[in-house]
Structure formats: structure tokens, C-alpha cells
Design a protein around this nucleic acid. Sequence first.
DNA 1: CGCGATTTGTGCACGGCTTCACAAGCGCCT
DNA 2: AGGCGCTTGTGAAGCCGTGCACAAATCGCG
Lengths: 248, 248
Amino acid sequence: MSQQRTGPTDGPDFPDLPEATVARLPEYLRALHHLAEDGHDTVSSEGLAAAAGVNSAKLRKDLSHLGRTGTRGVGYDVTLLIDQIEQVLGLTHRRAVALVGVGNLGHALAGYAGFGTRGFRIAALFDADHGRVGEHINGLVVRHIDDLPEVVEQESISIAVIATPAHAAQHVADRLVEAGVTSVLNFAPCVLNVPDGVDVRKVDLAIELQILSFHEHRKSALTALPAAVQKPGRVGMANRLGGEAVAT
Amino acid sequence: MSQQRTGPTDGPDFPDLPEATVARLPEYLRALHHLAEDGHDTVSSEGLAAAAGVNSAKLRKDLSHLGRTGTRGVGYDVTLLIDQIEQVLGLTHRRAVALVGVGNLGHALAGYAGFGTRGFRIAALFDADHGRVGEHINGLVVRHIDDLPEVVEQESISIAVIATPAHAAQHVADRLVEAGVTSVLNFAPCVLNVPDGVDVRKVDLAIELQILSFHEHRKSALTALPAAVQKPGRVGMANRLGGEAVAT
DNA sequence: CGCGATTTGTGCACGGCTTCACAAGCGCCT
DNA sequence: AGGCGCTTGTGAAGCCGTGCACAAATCGCG
């Protein structure tokens, strides 16, 4: 419960956004950075929606939750919108992240440049295996998990990534919570039980593949079934009125 | 009872599972395997729901889409349910997966044991860098991406994982589709354009962290001050959790 | 200075998903 | 054998998210 410093300028003023909107804002942010690099200073909702892979009306509704952001007849100011989204997402400062589990996947995550360029800083690496403690990875030294409380306090870490085997993940999560971490990104294939107030997001590679497998299964079943299903379409349910053919 | 059912009987087999259900079935499957290892032969919806981290009513409705699966008063037969879910997900045979991009993350994925134990087999590794072609990883040799069509055909690959840098991902996706791949799991932080009939799922580590960052930001704002919202009410829409009772 | 082209912001309707609550079914115990 | 407790399966209601369609707003230009 260490009270973080509350900056004077970055006040706690933002509406409560729909969860679906929050999940899409990072995608908009990435697309906006890309547009900014290409020299665009403004972008229309249509253009940004295409770059982010969503419907333009959805994008406008999402952005409308942030307050007045666009200019009618013109579009959105790219840099201004970047600032607004980053502020809403709490990316005004580089957040420190702890990574627990320096195995196969943990190694890769520790070396992943995408963290550093998108608002995060891997501040510490942990492992339970004393044989790995002391190893240097990407300029960081692996510490033992017993040092969690000390390092979390010292580095003001509130987010942690779990990349341990499944059987260790719950134990690690308990110790993380105990040390003061309040957000966890879990790569272990298991359900984590955490107290209220702690957020957990899960990434399970096998689950993603199994979902794809279902669709593969369905697709192959369709080609075996009735006549005239050779058309590859019929996946989206977006267009009910406009029978618009896909341009190729 | 003669209640209204879903009138139009356009259900050949079970092609129409709700997408949300499909996304949860793998989690149930994993929990069931865990229960089976622990010696359980039956499980109640309450128990399985707890193991999978969902609501029990939701779980029952999900499973009801698979047909008669449980026994009232008893619960679900674990092994039977495993078989049914695996069949629906198309996991009756081990699906061959291609992995493109043997960099930092690709290396880790190639060595991830979770694929092998949960219905998949990494059948081929690819990279565009000739310096990496020929390298042996986990018993597989890295091949050049030009060999895609040949290997995809030979190994009957329909699912591919993209673990390349973002700037190469679209090109790789195009070549995968061209070679006959119809499902893609994309780890590159970019939007992929693919024709109809091809499924894409995306995993972006930075986006997951940014979503957590938002909630961290919100939490710290809540603990910062319980009263005295200094900004004038520029709230656009309904603020149903009435924080407006601030009288000073 | 006003008009038209353009684009945002949003009201509205629709469909999907979630949750509650309960009847129907099943096995066990007396 | 029959009732009783337990659990599934599911109607029904509410909520959330999506996408259409259009009014409001802004800029550029004649």
C-alpha cells in the first residue's frame, strides 16, 4: 500500500472507459505512432480505423470517450491524440515491470525490445532456481525470488510478468501480491487466484492455437458438406444489408 | 413445455458455437486434464467452473452447446467431456504448425513444450535470414522462407505462427496464405490483412501490459483522493457511480 | 461572407453474451 | 419403492458492444 507520488500535472481525471475500448486504445496508439513516423500530422477516423483494423464508427465512439479529440471536417491531430491516449493509459512515465521466471520464454521476454519502446522498462528479473540467479541477461542480473519485496519496493514495481511453469505460477503470484504488485500478466497455462484489487491478464499460446484449430476444423467440415460452399467467404457477419463484394 | 426454441433448424452438426464459448473451451479442456491427473472421474459444473475461473452457469451453457454431456445429480464425466471438447476443437489428431521467424521470441516458441502436449506439433521452422537457415533448434532445422510452399504441402500445414519483426509480418502472411495456410497466430505488433477465409489471431505483449497500465493508473487515481475532484465536470456521458456528492 | 465538401460525434436499434433463478432429471438412501 | 437432495439444462431479463445513419461542426474557396 505504498502511496505512489501523485504528480501535480497528471491528475486523476478521466472517465471510466468501457473495457472493450480500453483494449483497443493500445492498438490505436501503435497505429498513430506509425502514422507519425510517416509524417502524417492529421488522420481521419477512416484512415486510423483502417490502420488499426477496426470499424471507423467504433473508433470514433472509442475516441469520443476521451473527450473532444477530433476536428470535424479535418480529422484527428496525430500527436495530440497520441498524448491523450498515453495519458489515459497511464503511459506518461515509463512503468517498471518485474519478470519472474527466466526459462525458455522468460529469456525471450527479457530480450524483447517491444517493451522498452512502448512505455515499459523491465526493472528486474527473478527466478526460483539458484542455478540461474546471478546470470546476466540483457544488462540485468537475475535475482532470487526471495528478494521480491525488497526490489519491488525499491523500484516501485506495480506490474509483473509470470513466465514460470504452471505449477509454480500460483505460488509466485501469491508472493508478488504480497510484495505489493497489483497487476500481473500471466504466461503460465493456469488460473491464478488473486485478491480483489489485483488485475490479471492471461496469455496462453496453446489456447490461441486451439481456437484456431476449431476454425480449421469447421472450415474443413464445411468443404465436405453441402454443395456450393467452395466460396471462401462466409466468415464475417458484418455485412447484413450491403451485399458488398470483396474487391481484389 | 413447448417453449420457443431457436426456430430455424439450420444446424447440420454443431457448426455454430458462440465465439465466446469457443474461446473458453480450451480453458475447460486444460482444467479437465488437470482434474483427470488428480484422479477425478466426475466433476460438477461448480467445480469445473472454479478450476477454469468462470461462472458455473456460463460453463453449463457453454457445455450445453455440445449436446447432452452431463448427468443431473452427478456432474460431468471427465474423460468423456475431454473427448467431446477435443473433438469439437478438432484436436483428434496432432495438427502440424509452422513457425516463421526464429529470432528471440521464435526460439522460445520453438522450445515451448506446451505446444506438443496440447495437440500441436511444430513441423517446420522458417526464417528469411540465410544466416539462420540450417540452424538446428529442438531437433528441427531452420529452412528458408522460400521453401514454404513445398513444406506446407508436404507436412499438411494449415496453421502458422508469425514471430517476425513487425515490418516483415505482412509479407510473411501473404506468402503463408499463398502457400495454403488458413490460420495464423501473429505475435508481431501490427495488423495483418488477409483474404476472407483466413483466420488471424493476434498476441501483443505490449498491448497486454498497456491494458494493465490503464488499470494501474485508474487504481492509483482512486487511492489518491477520495474526494475533491478538482476538474470541473466535463464528463461526457452518464456517470452512474455517483461521485457527484462532493460538497465543499 | 456564405456555401459546399468533408468529417466528427452520437442517437438508436440490434444482436450477442452473461447472469439469475428454477424446473426437470438422476441417483442414493431409507 | 418412493421420496429427497443434488446437479444439470435453460427460459428470461438485463447489459454491453457494434454498426448504421445522420445532424452538427469546421475548413477552404469563390
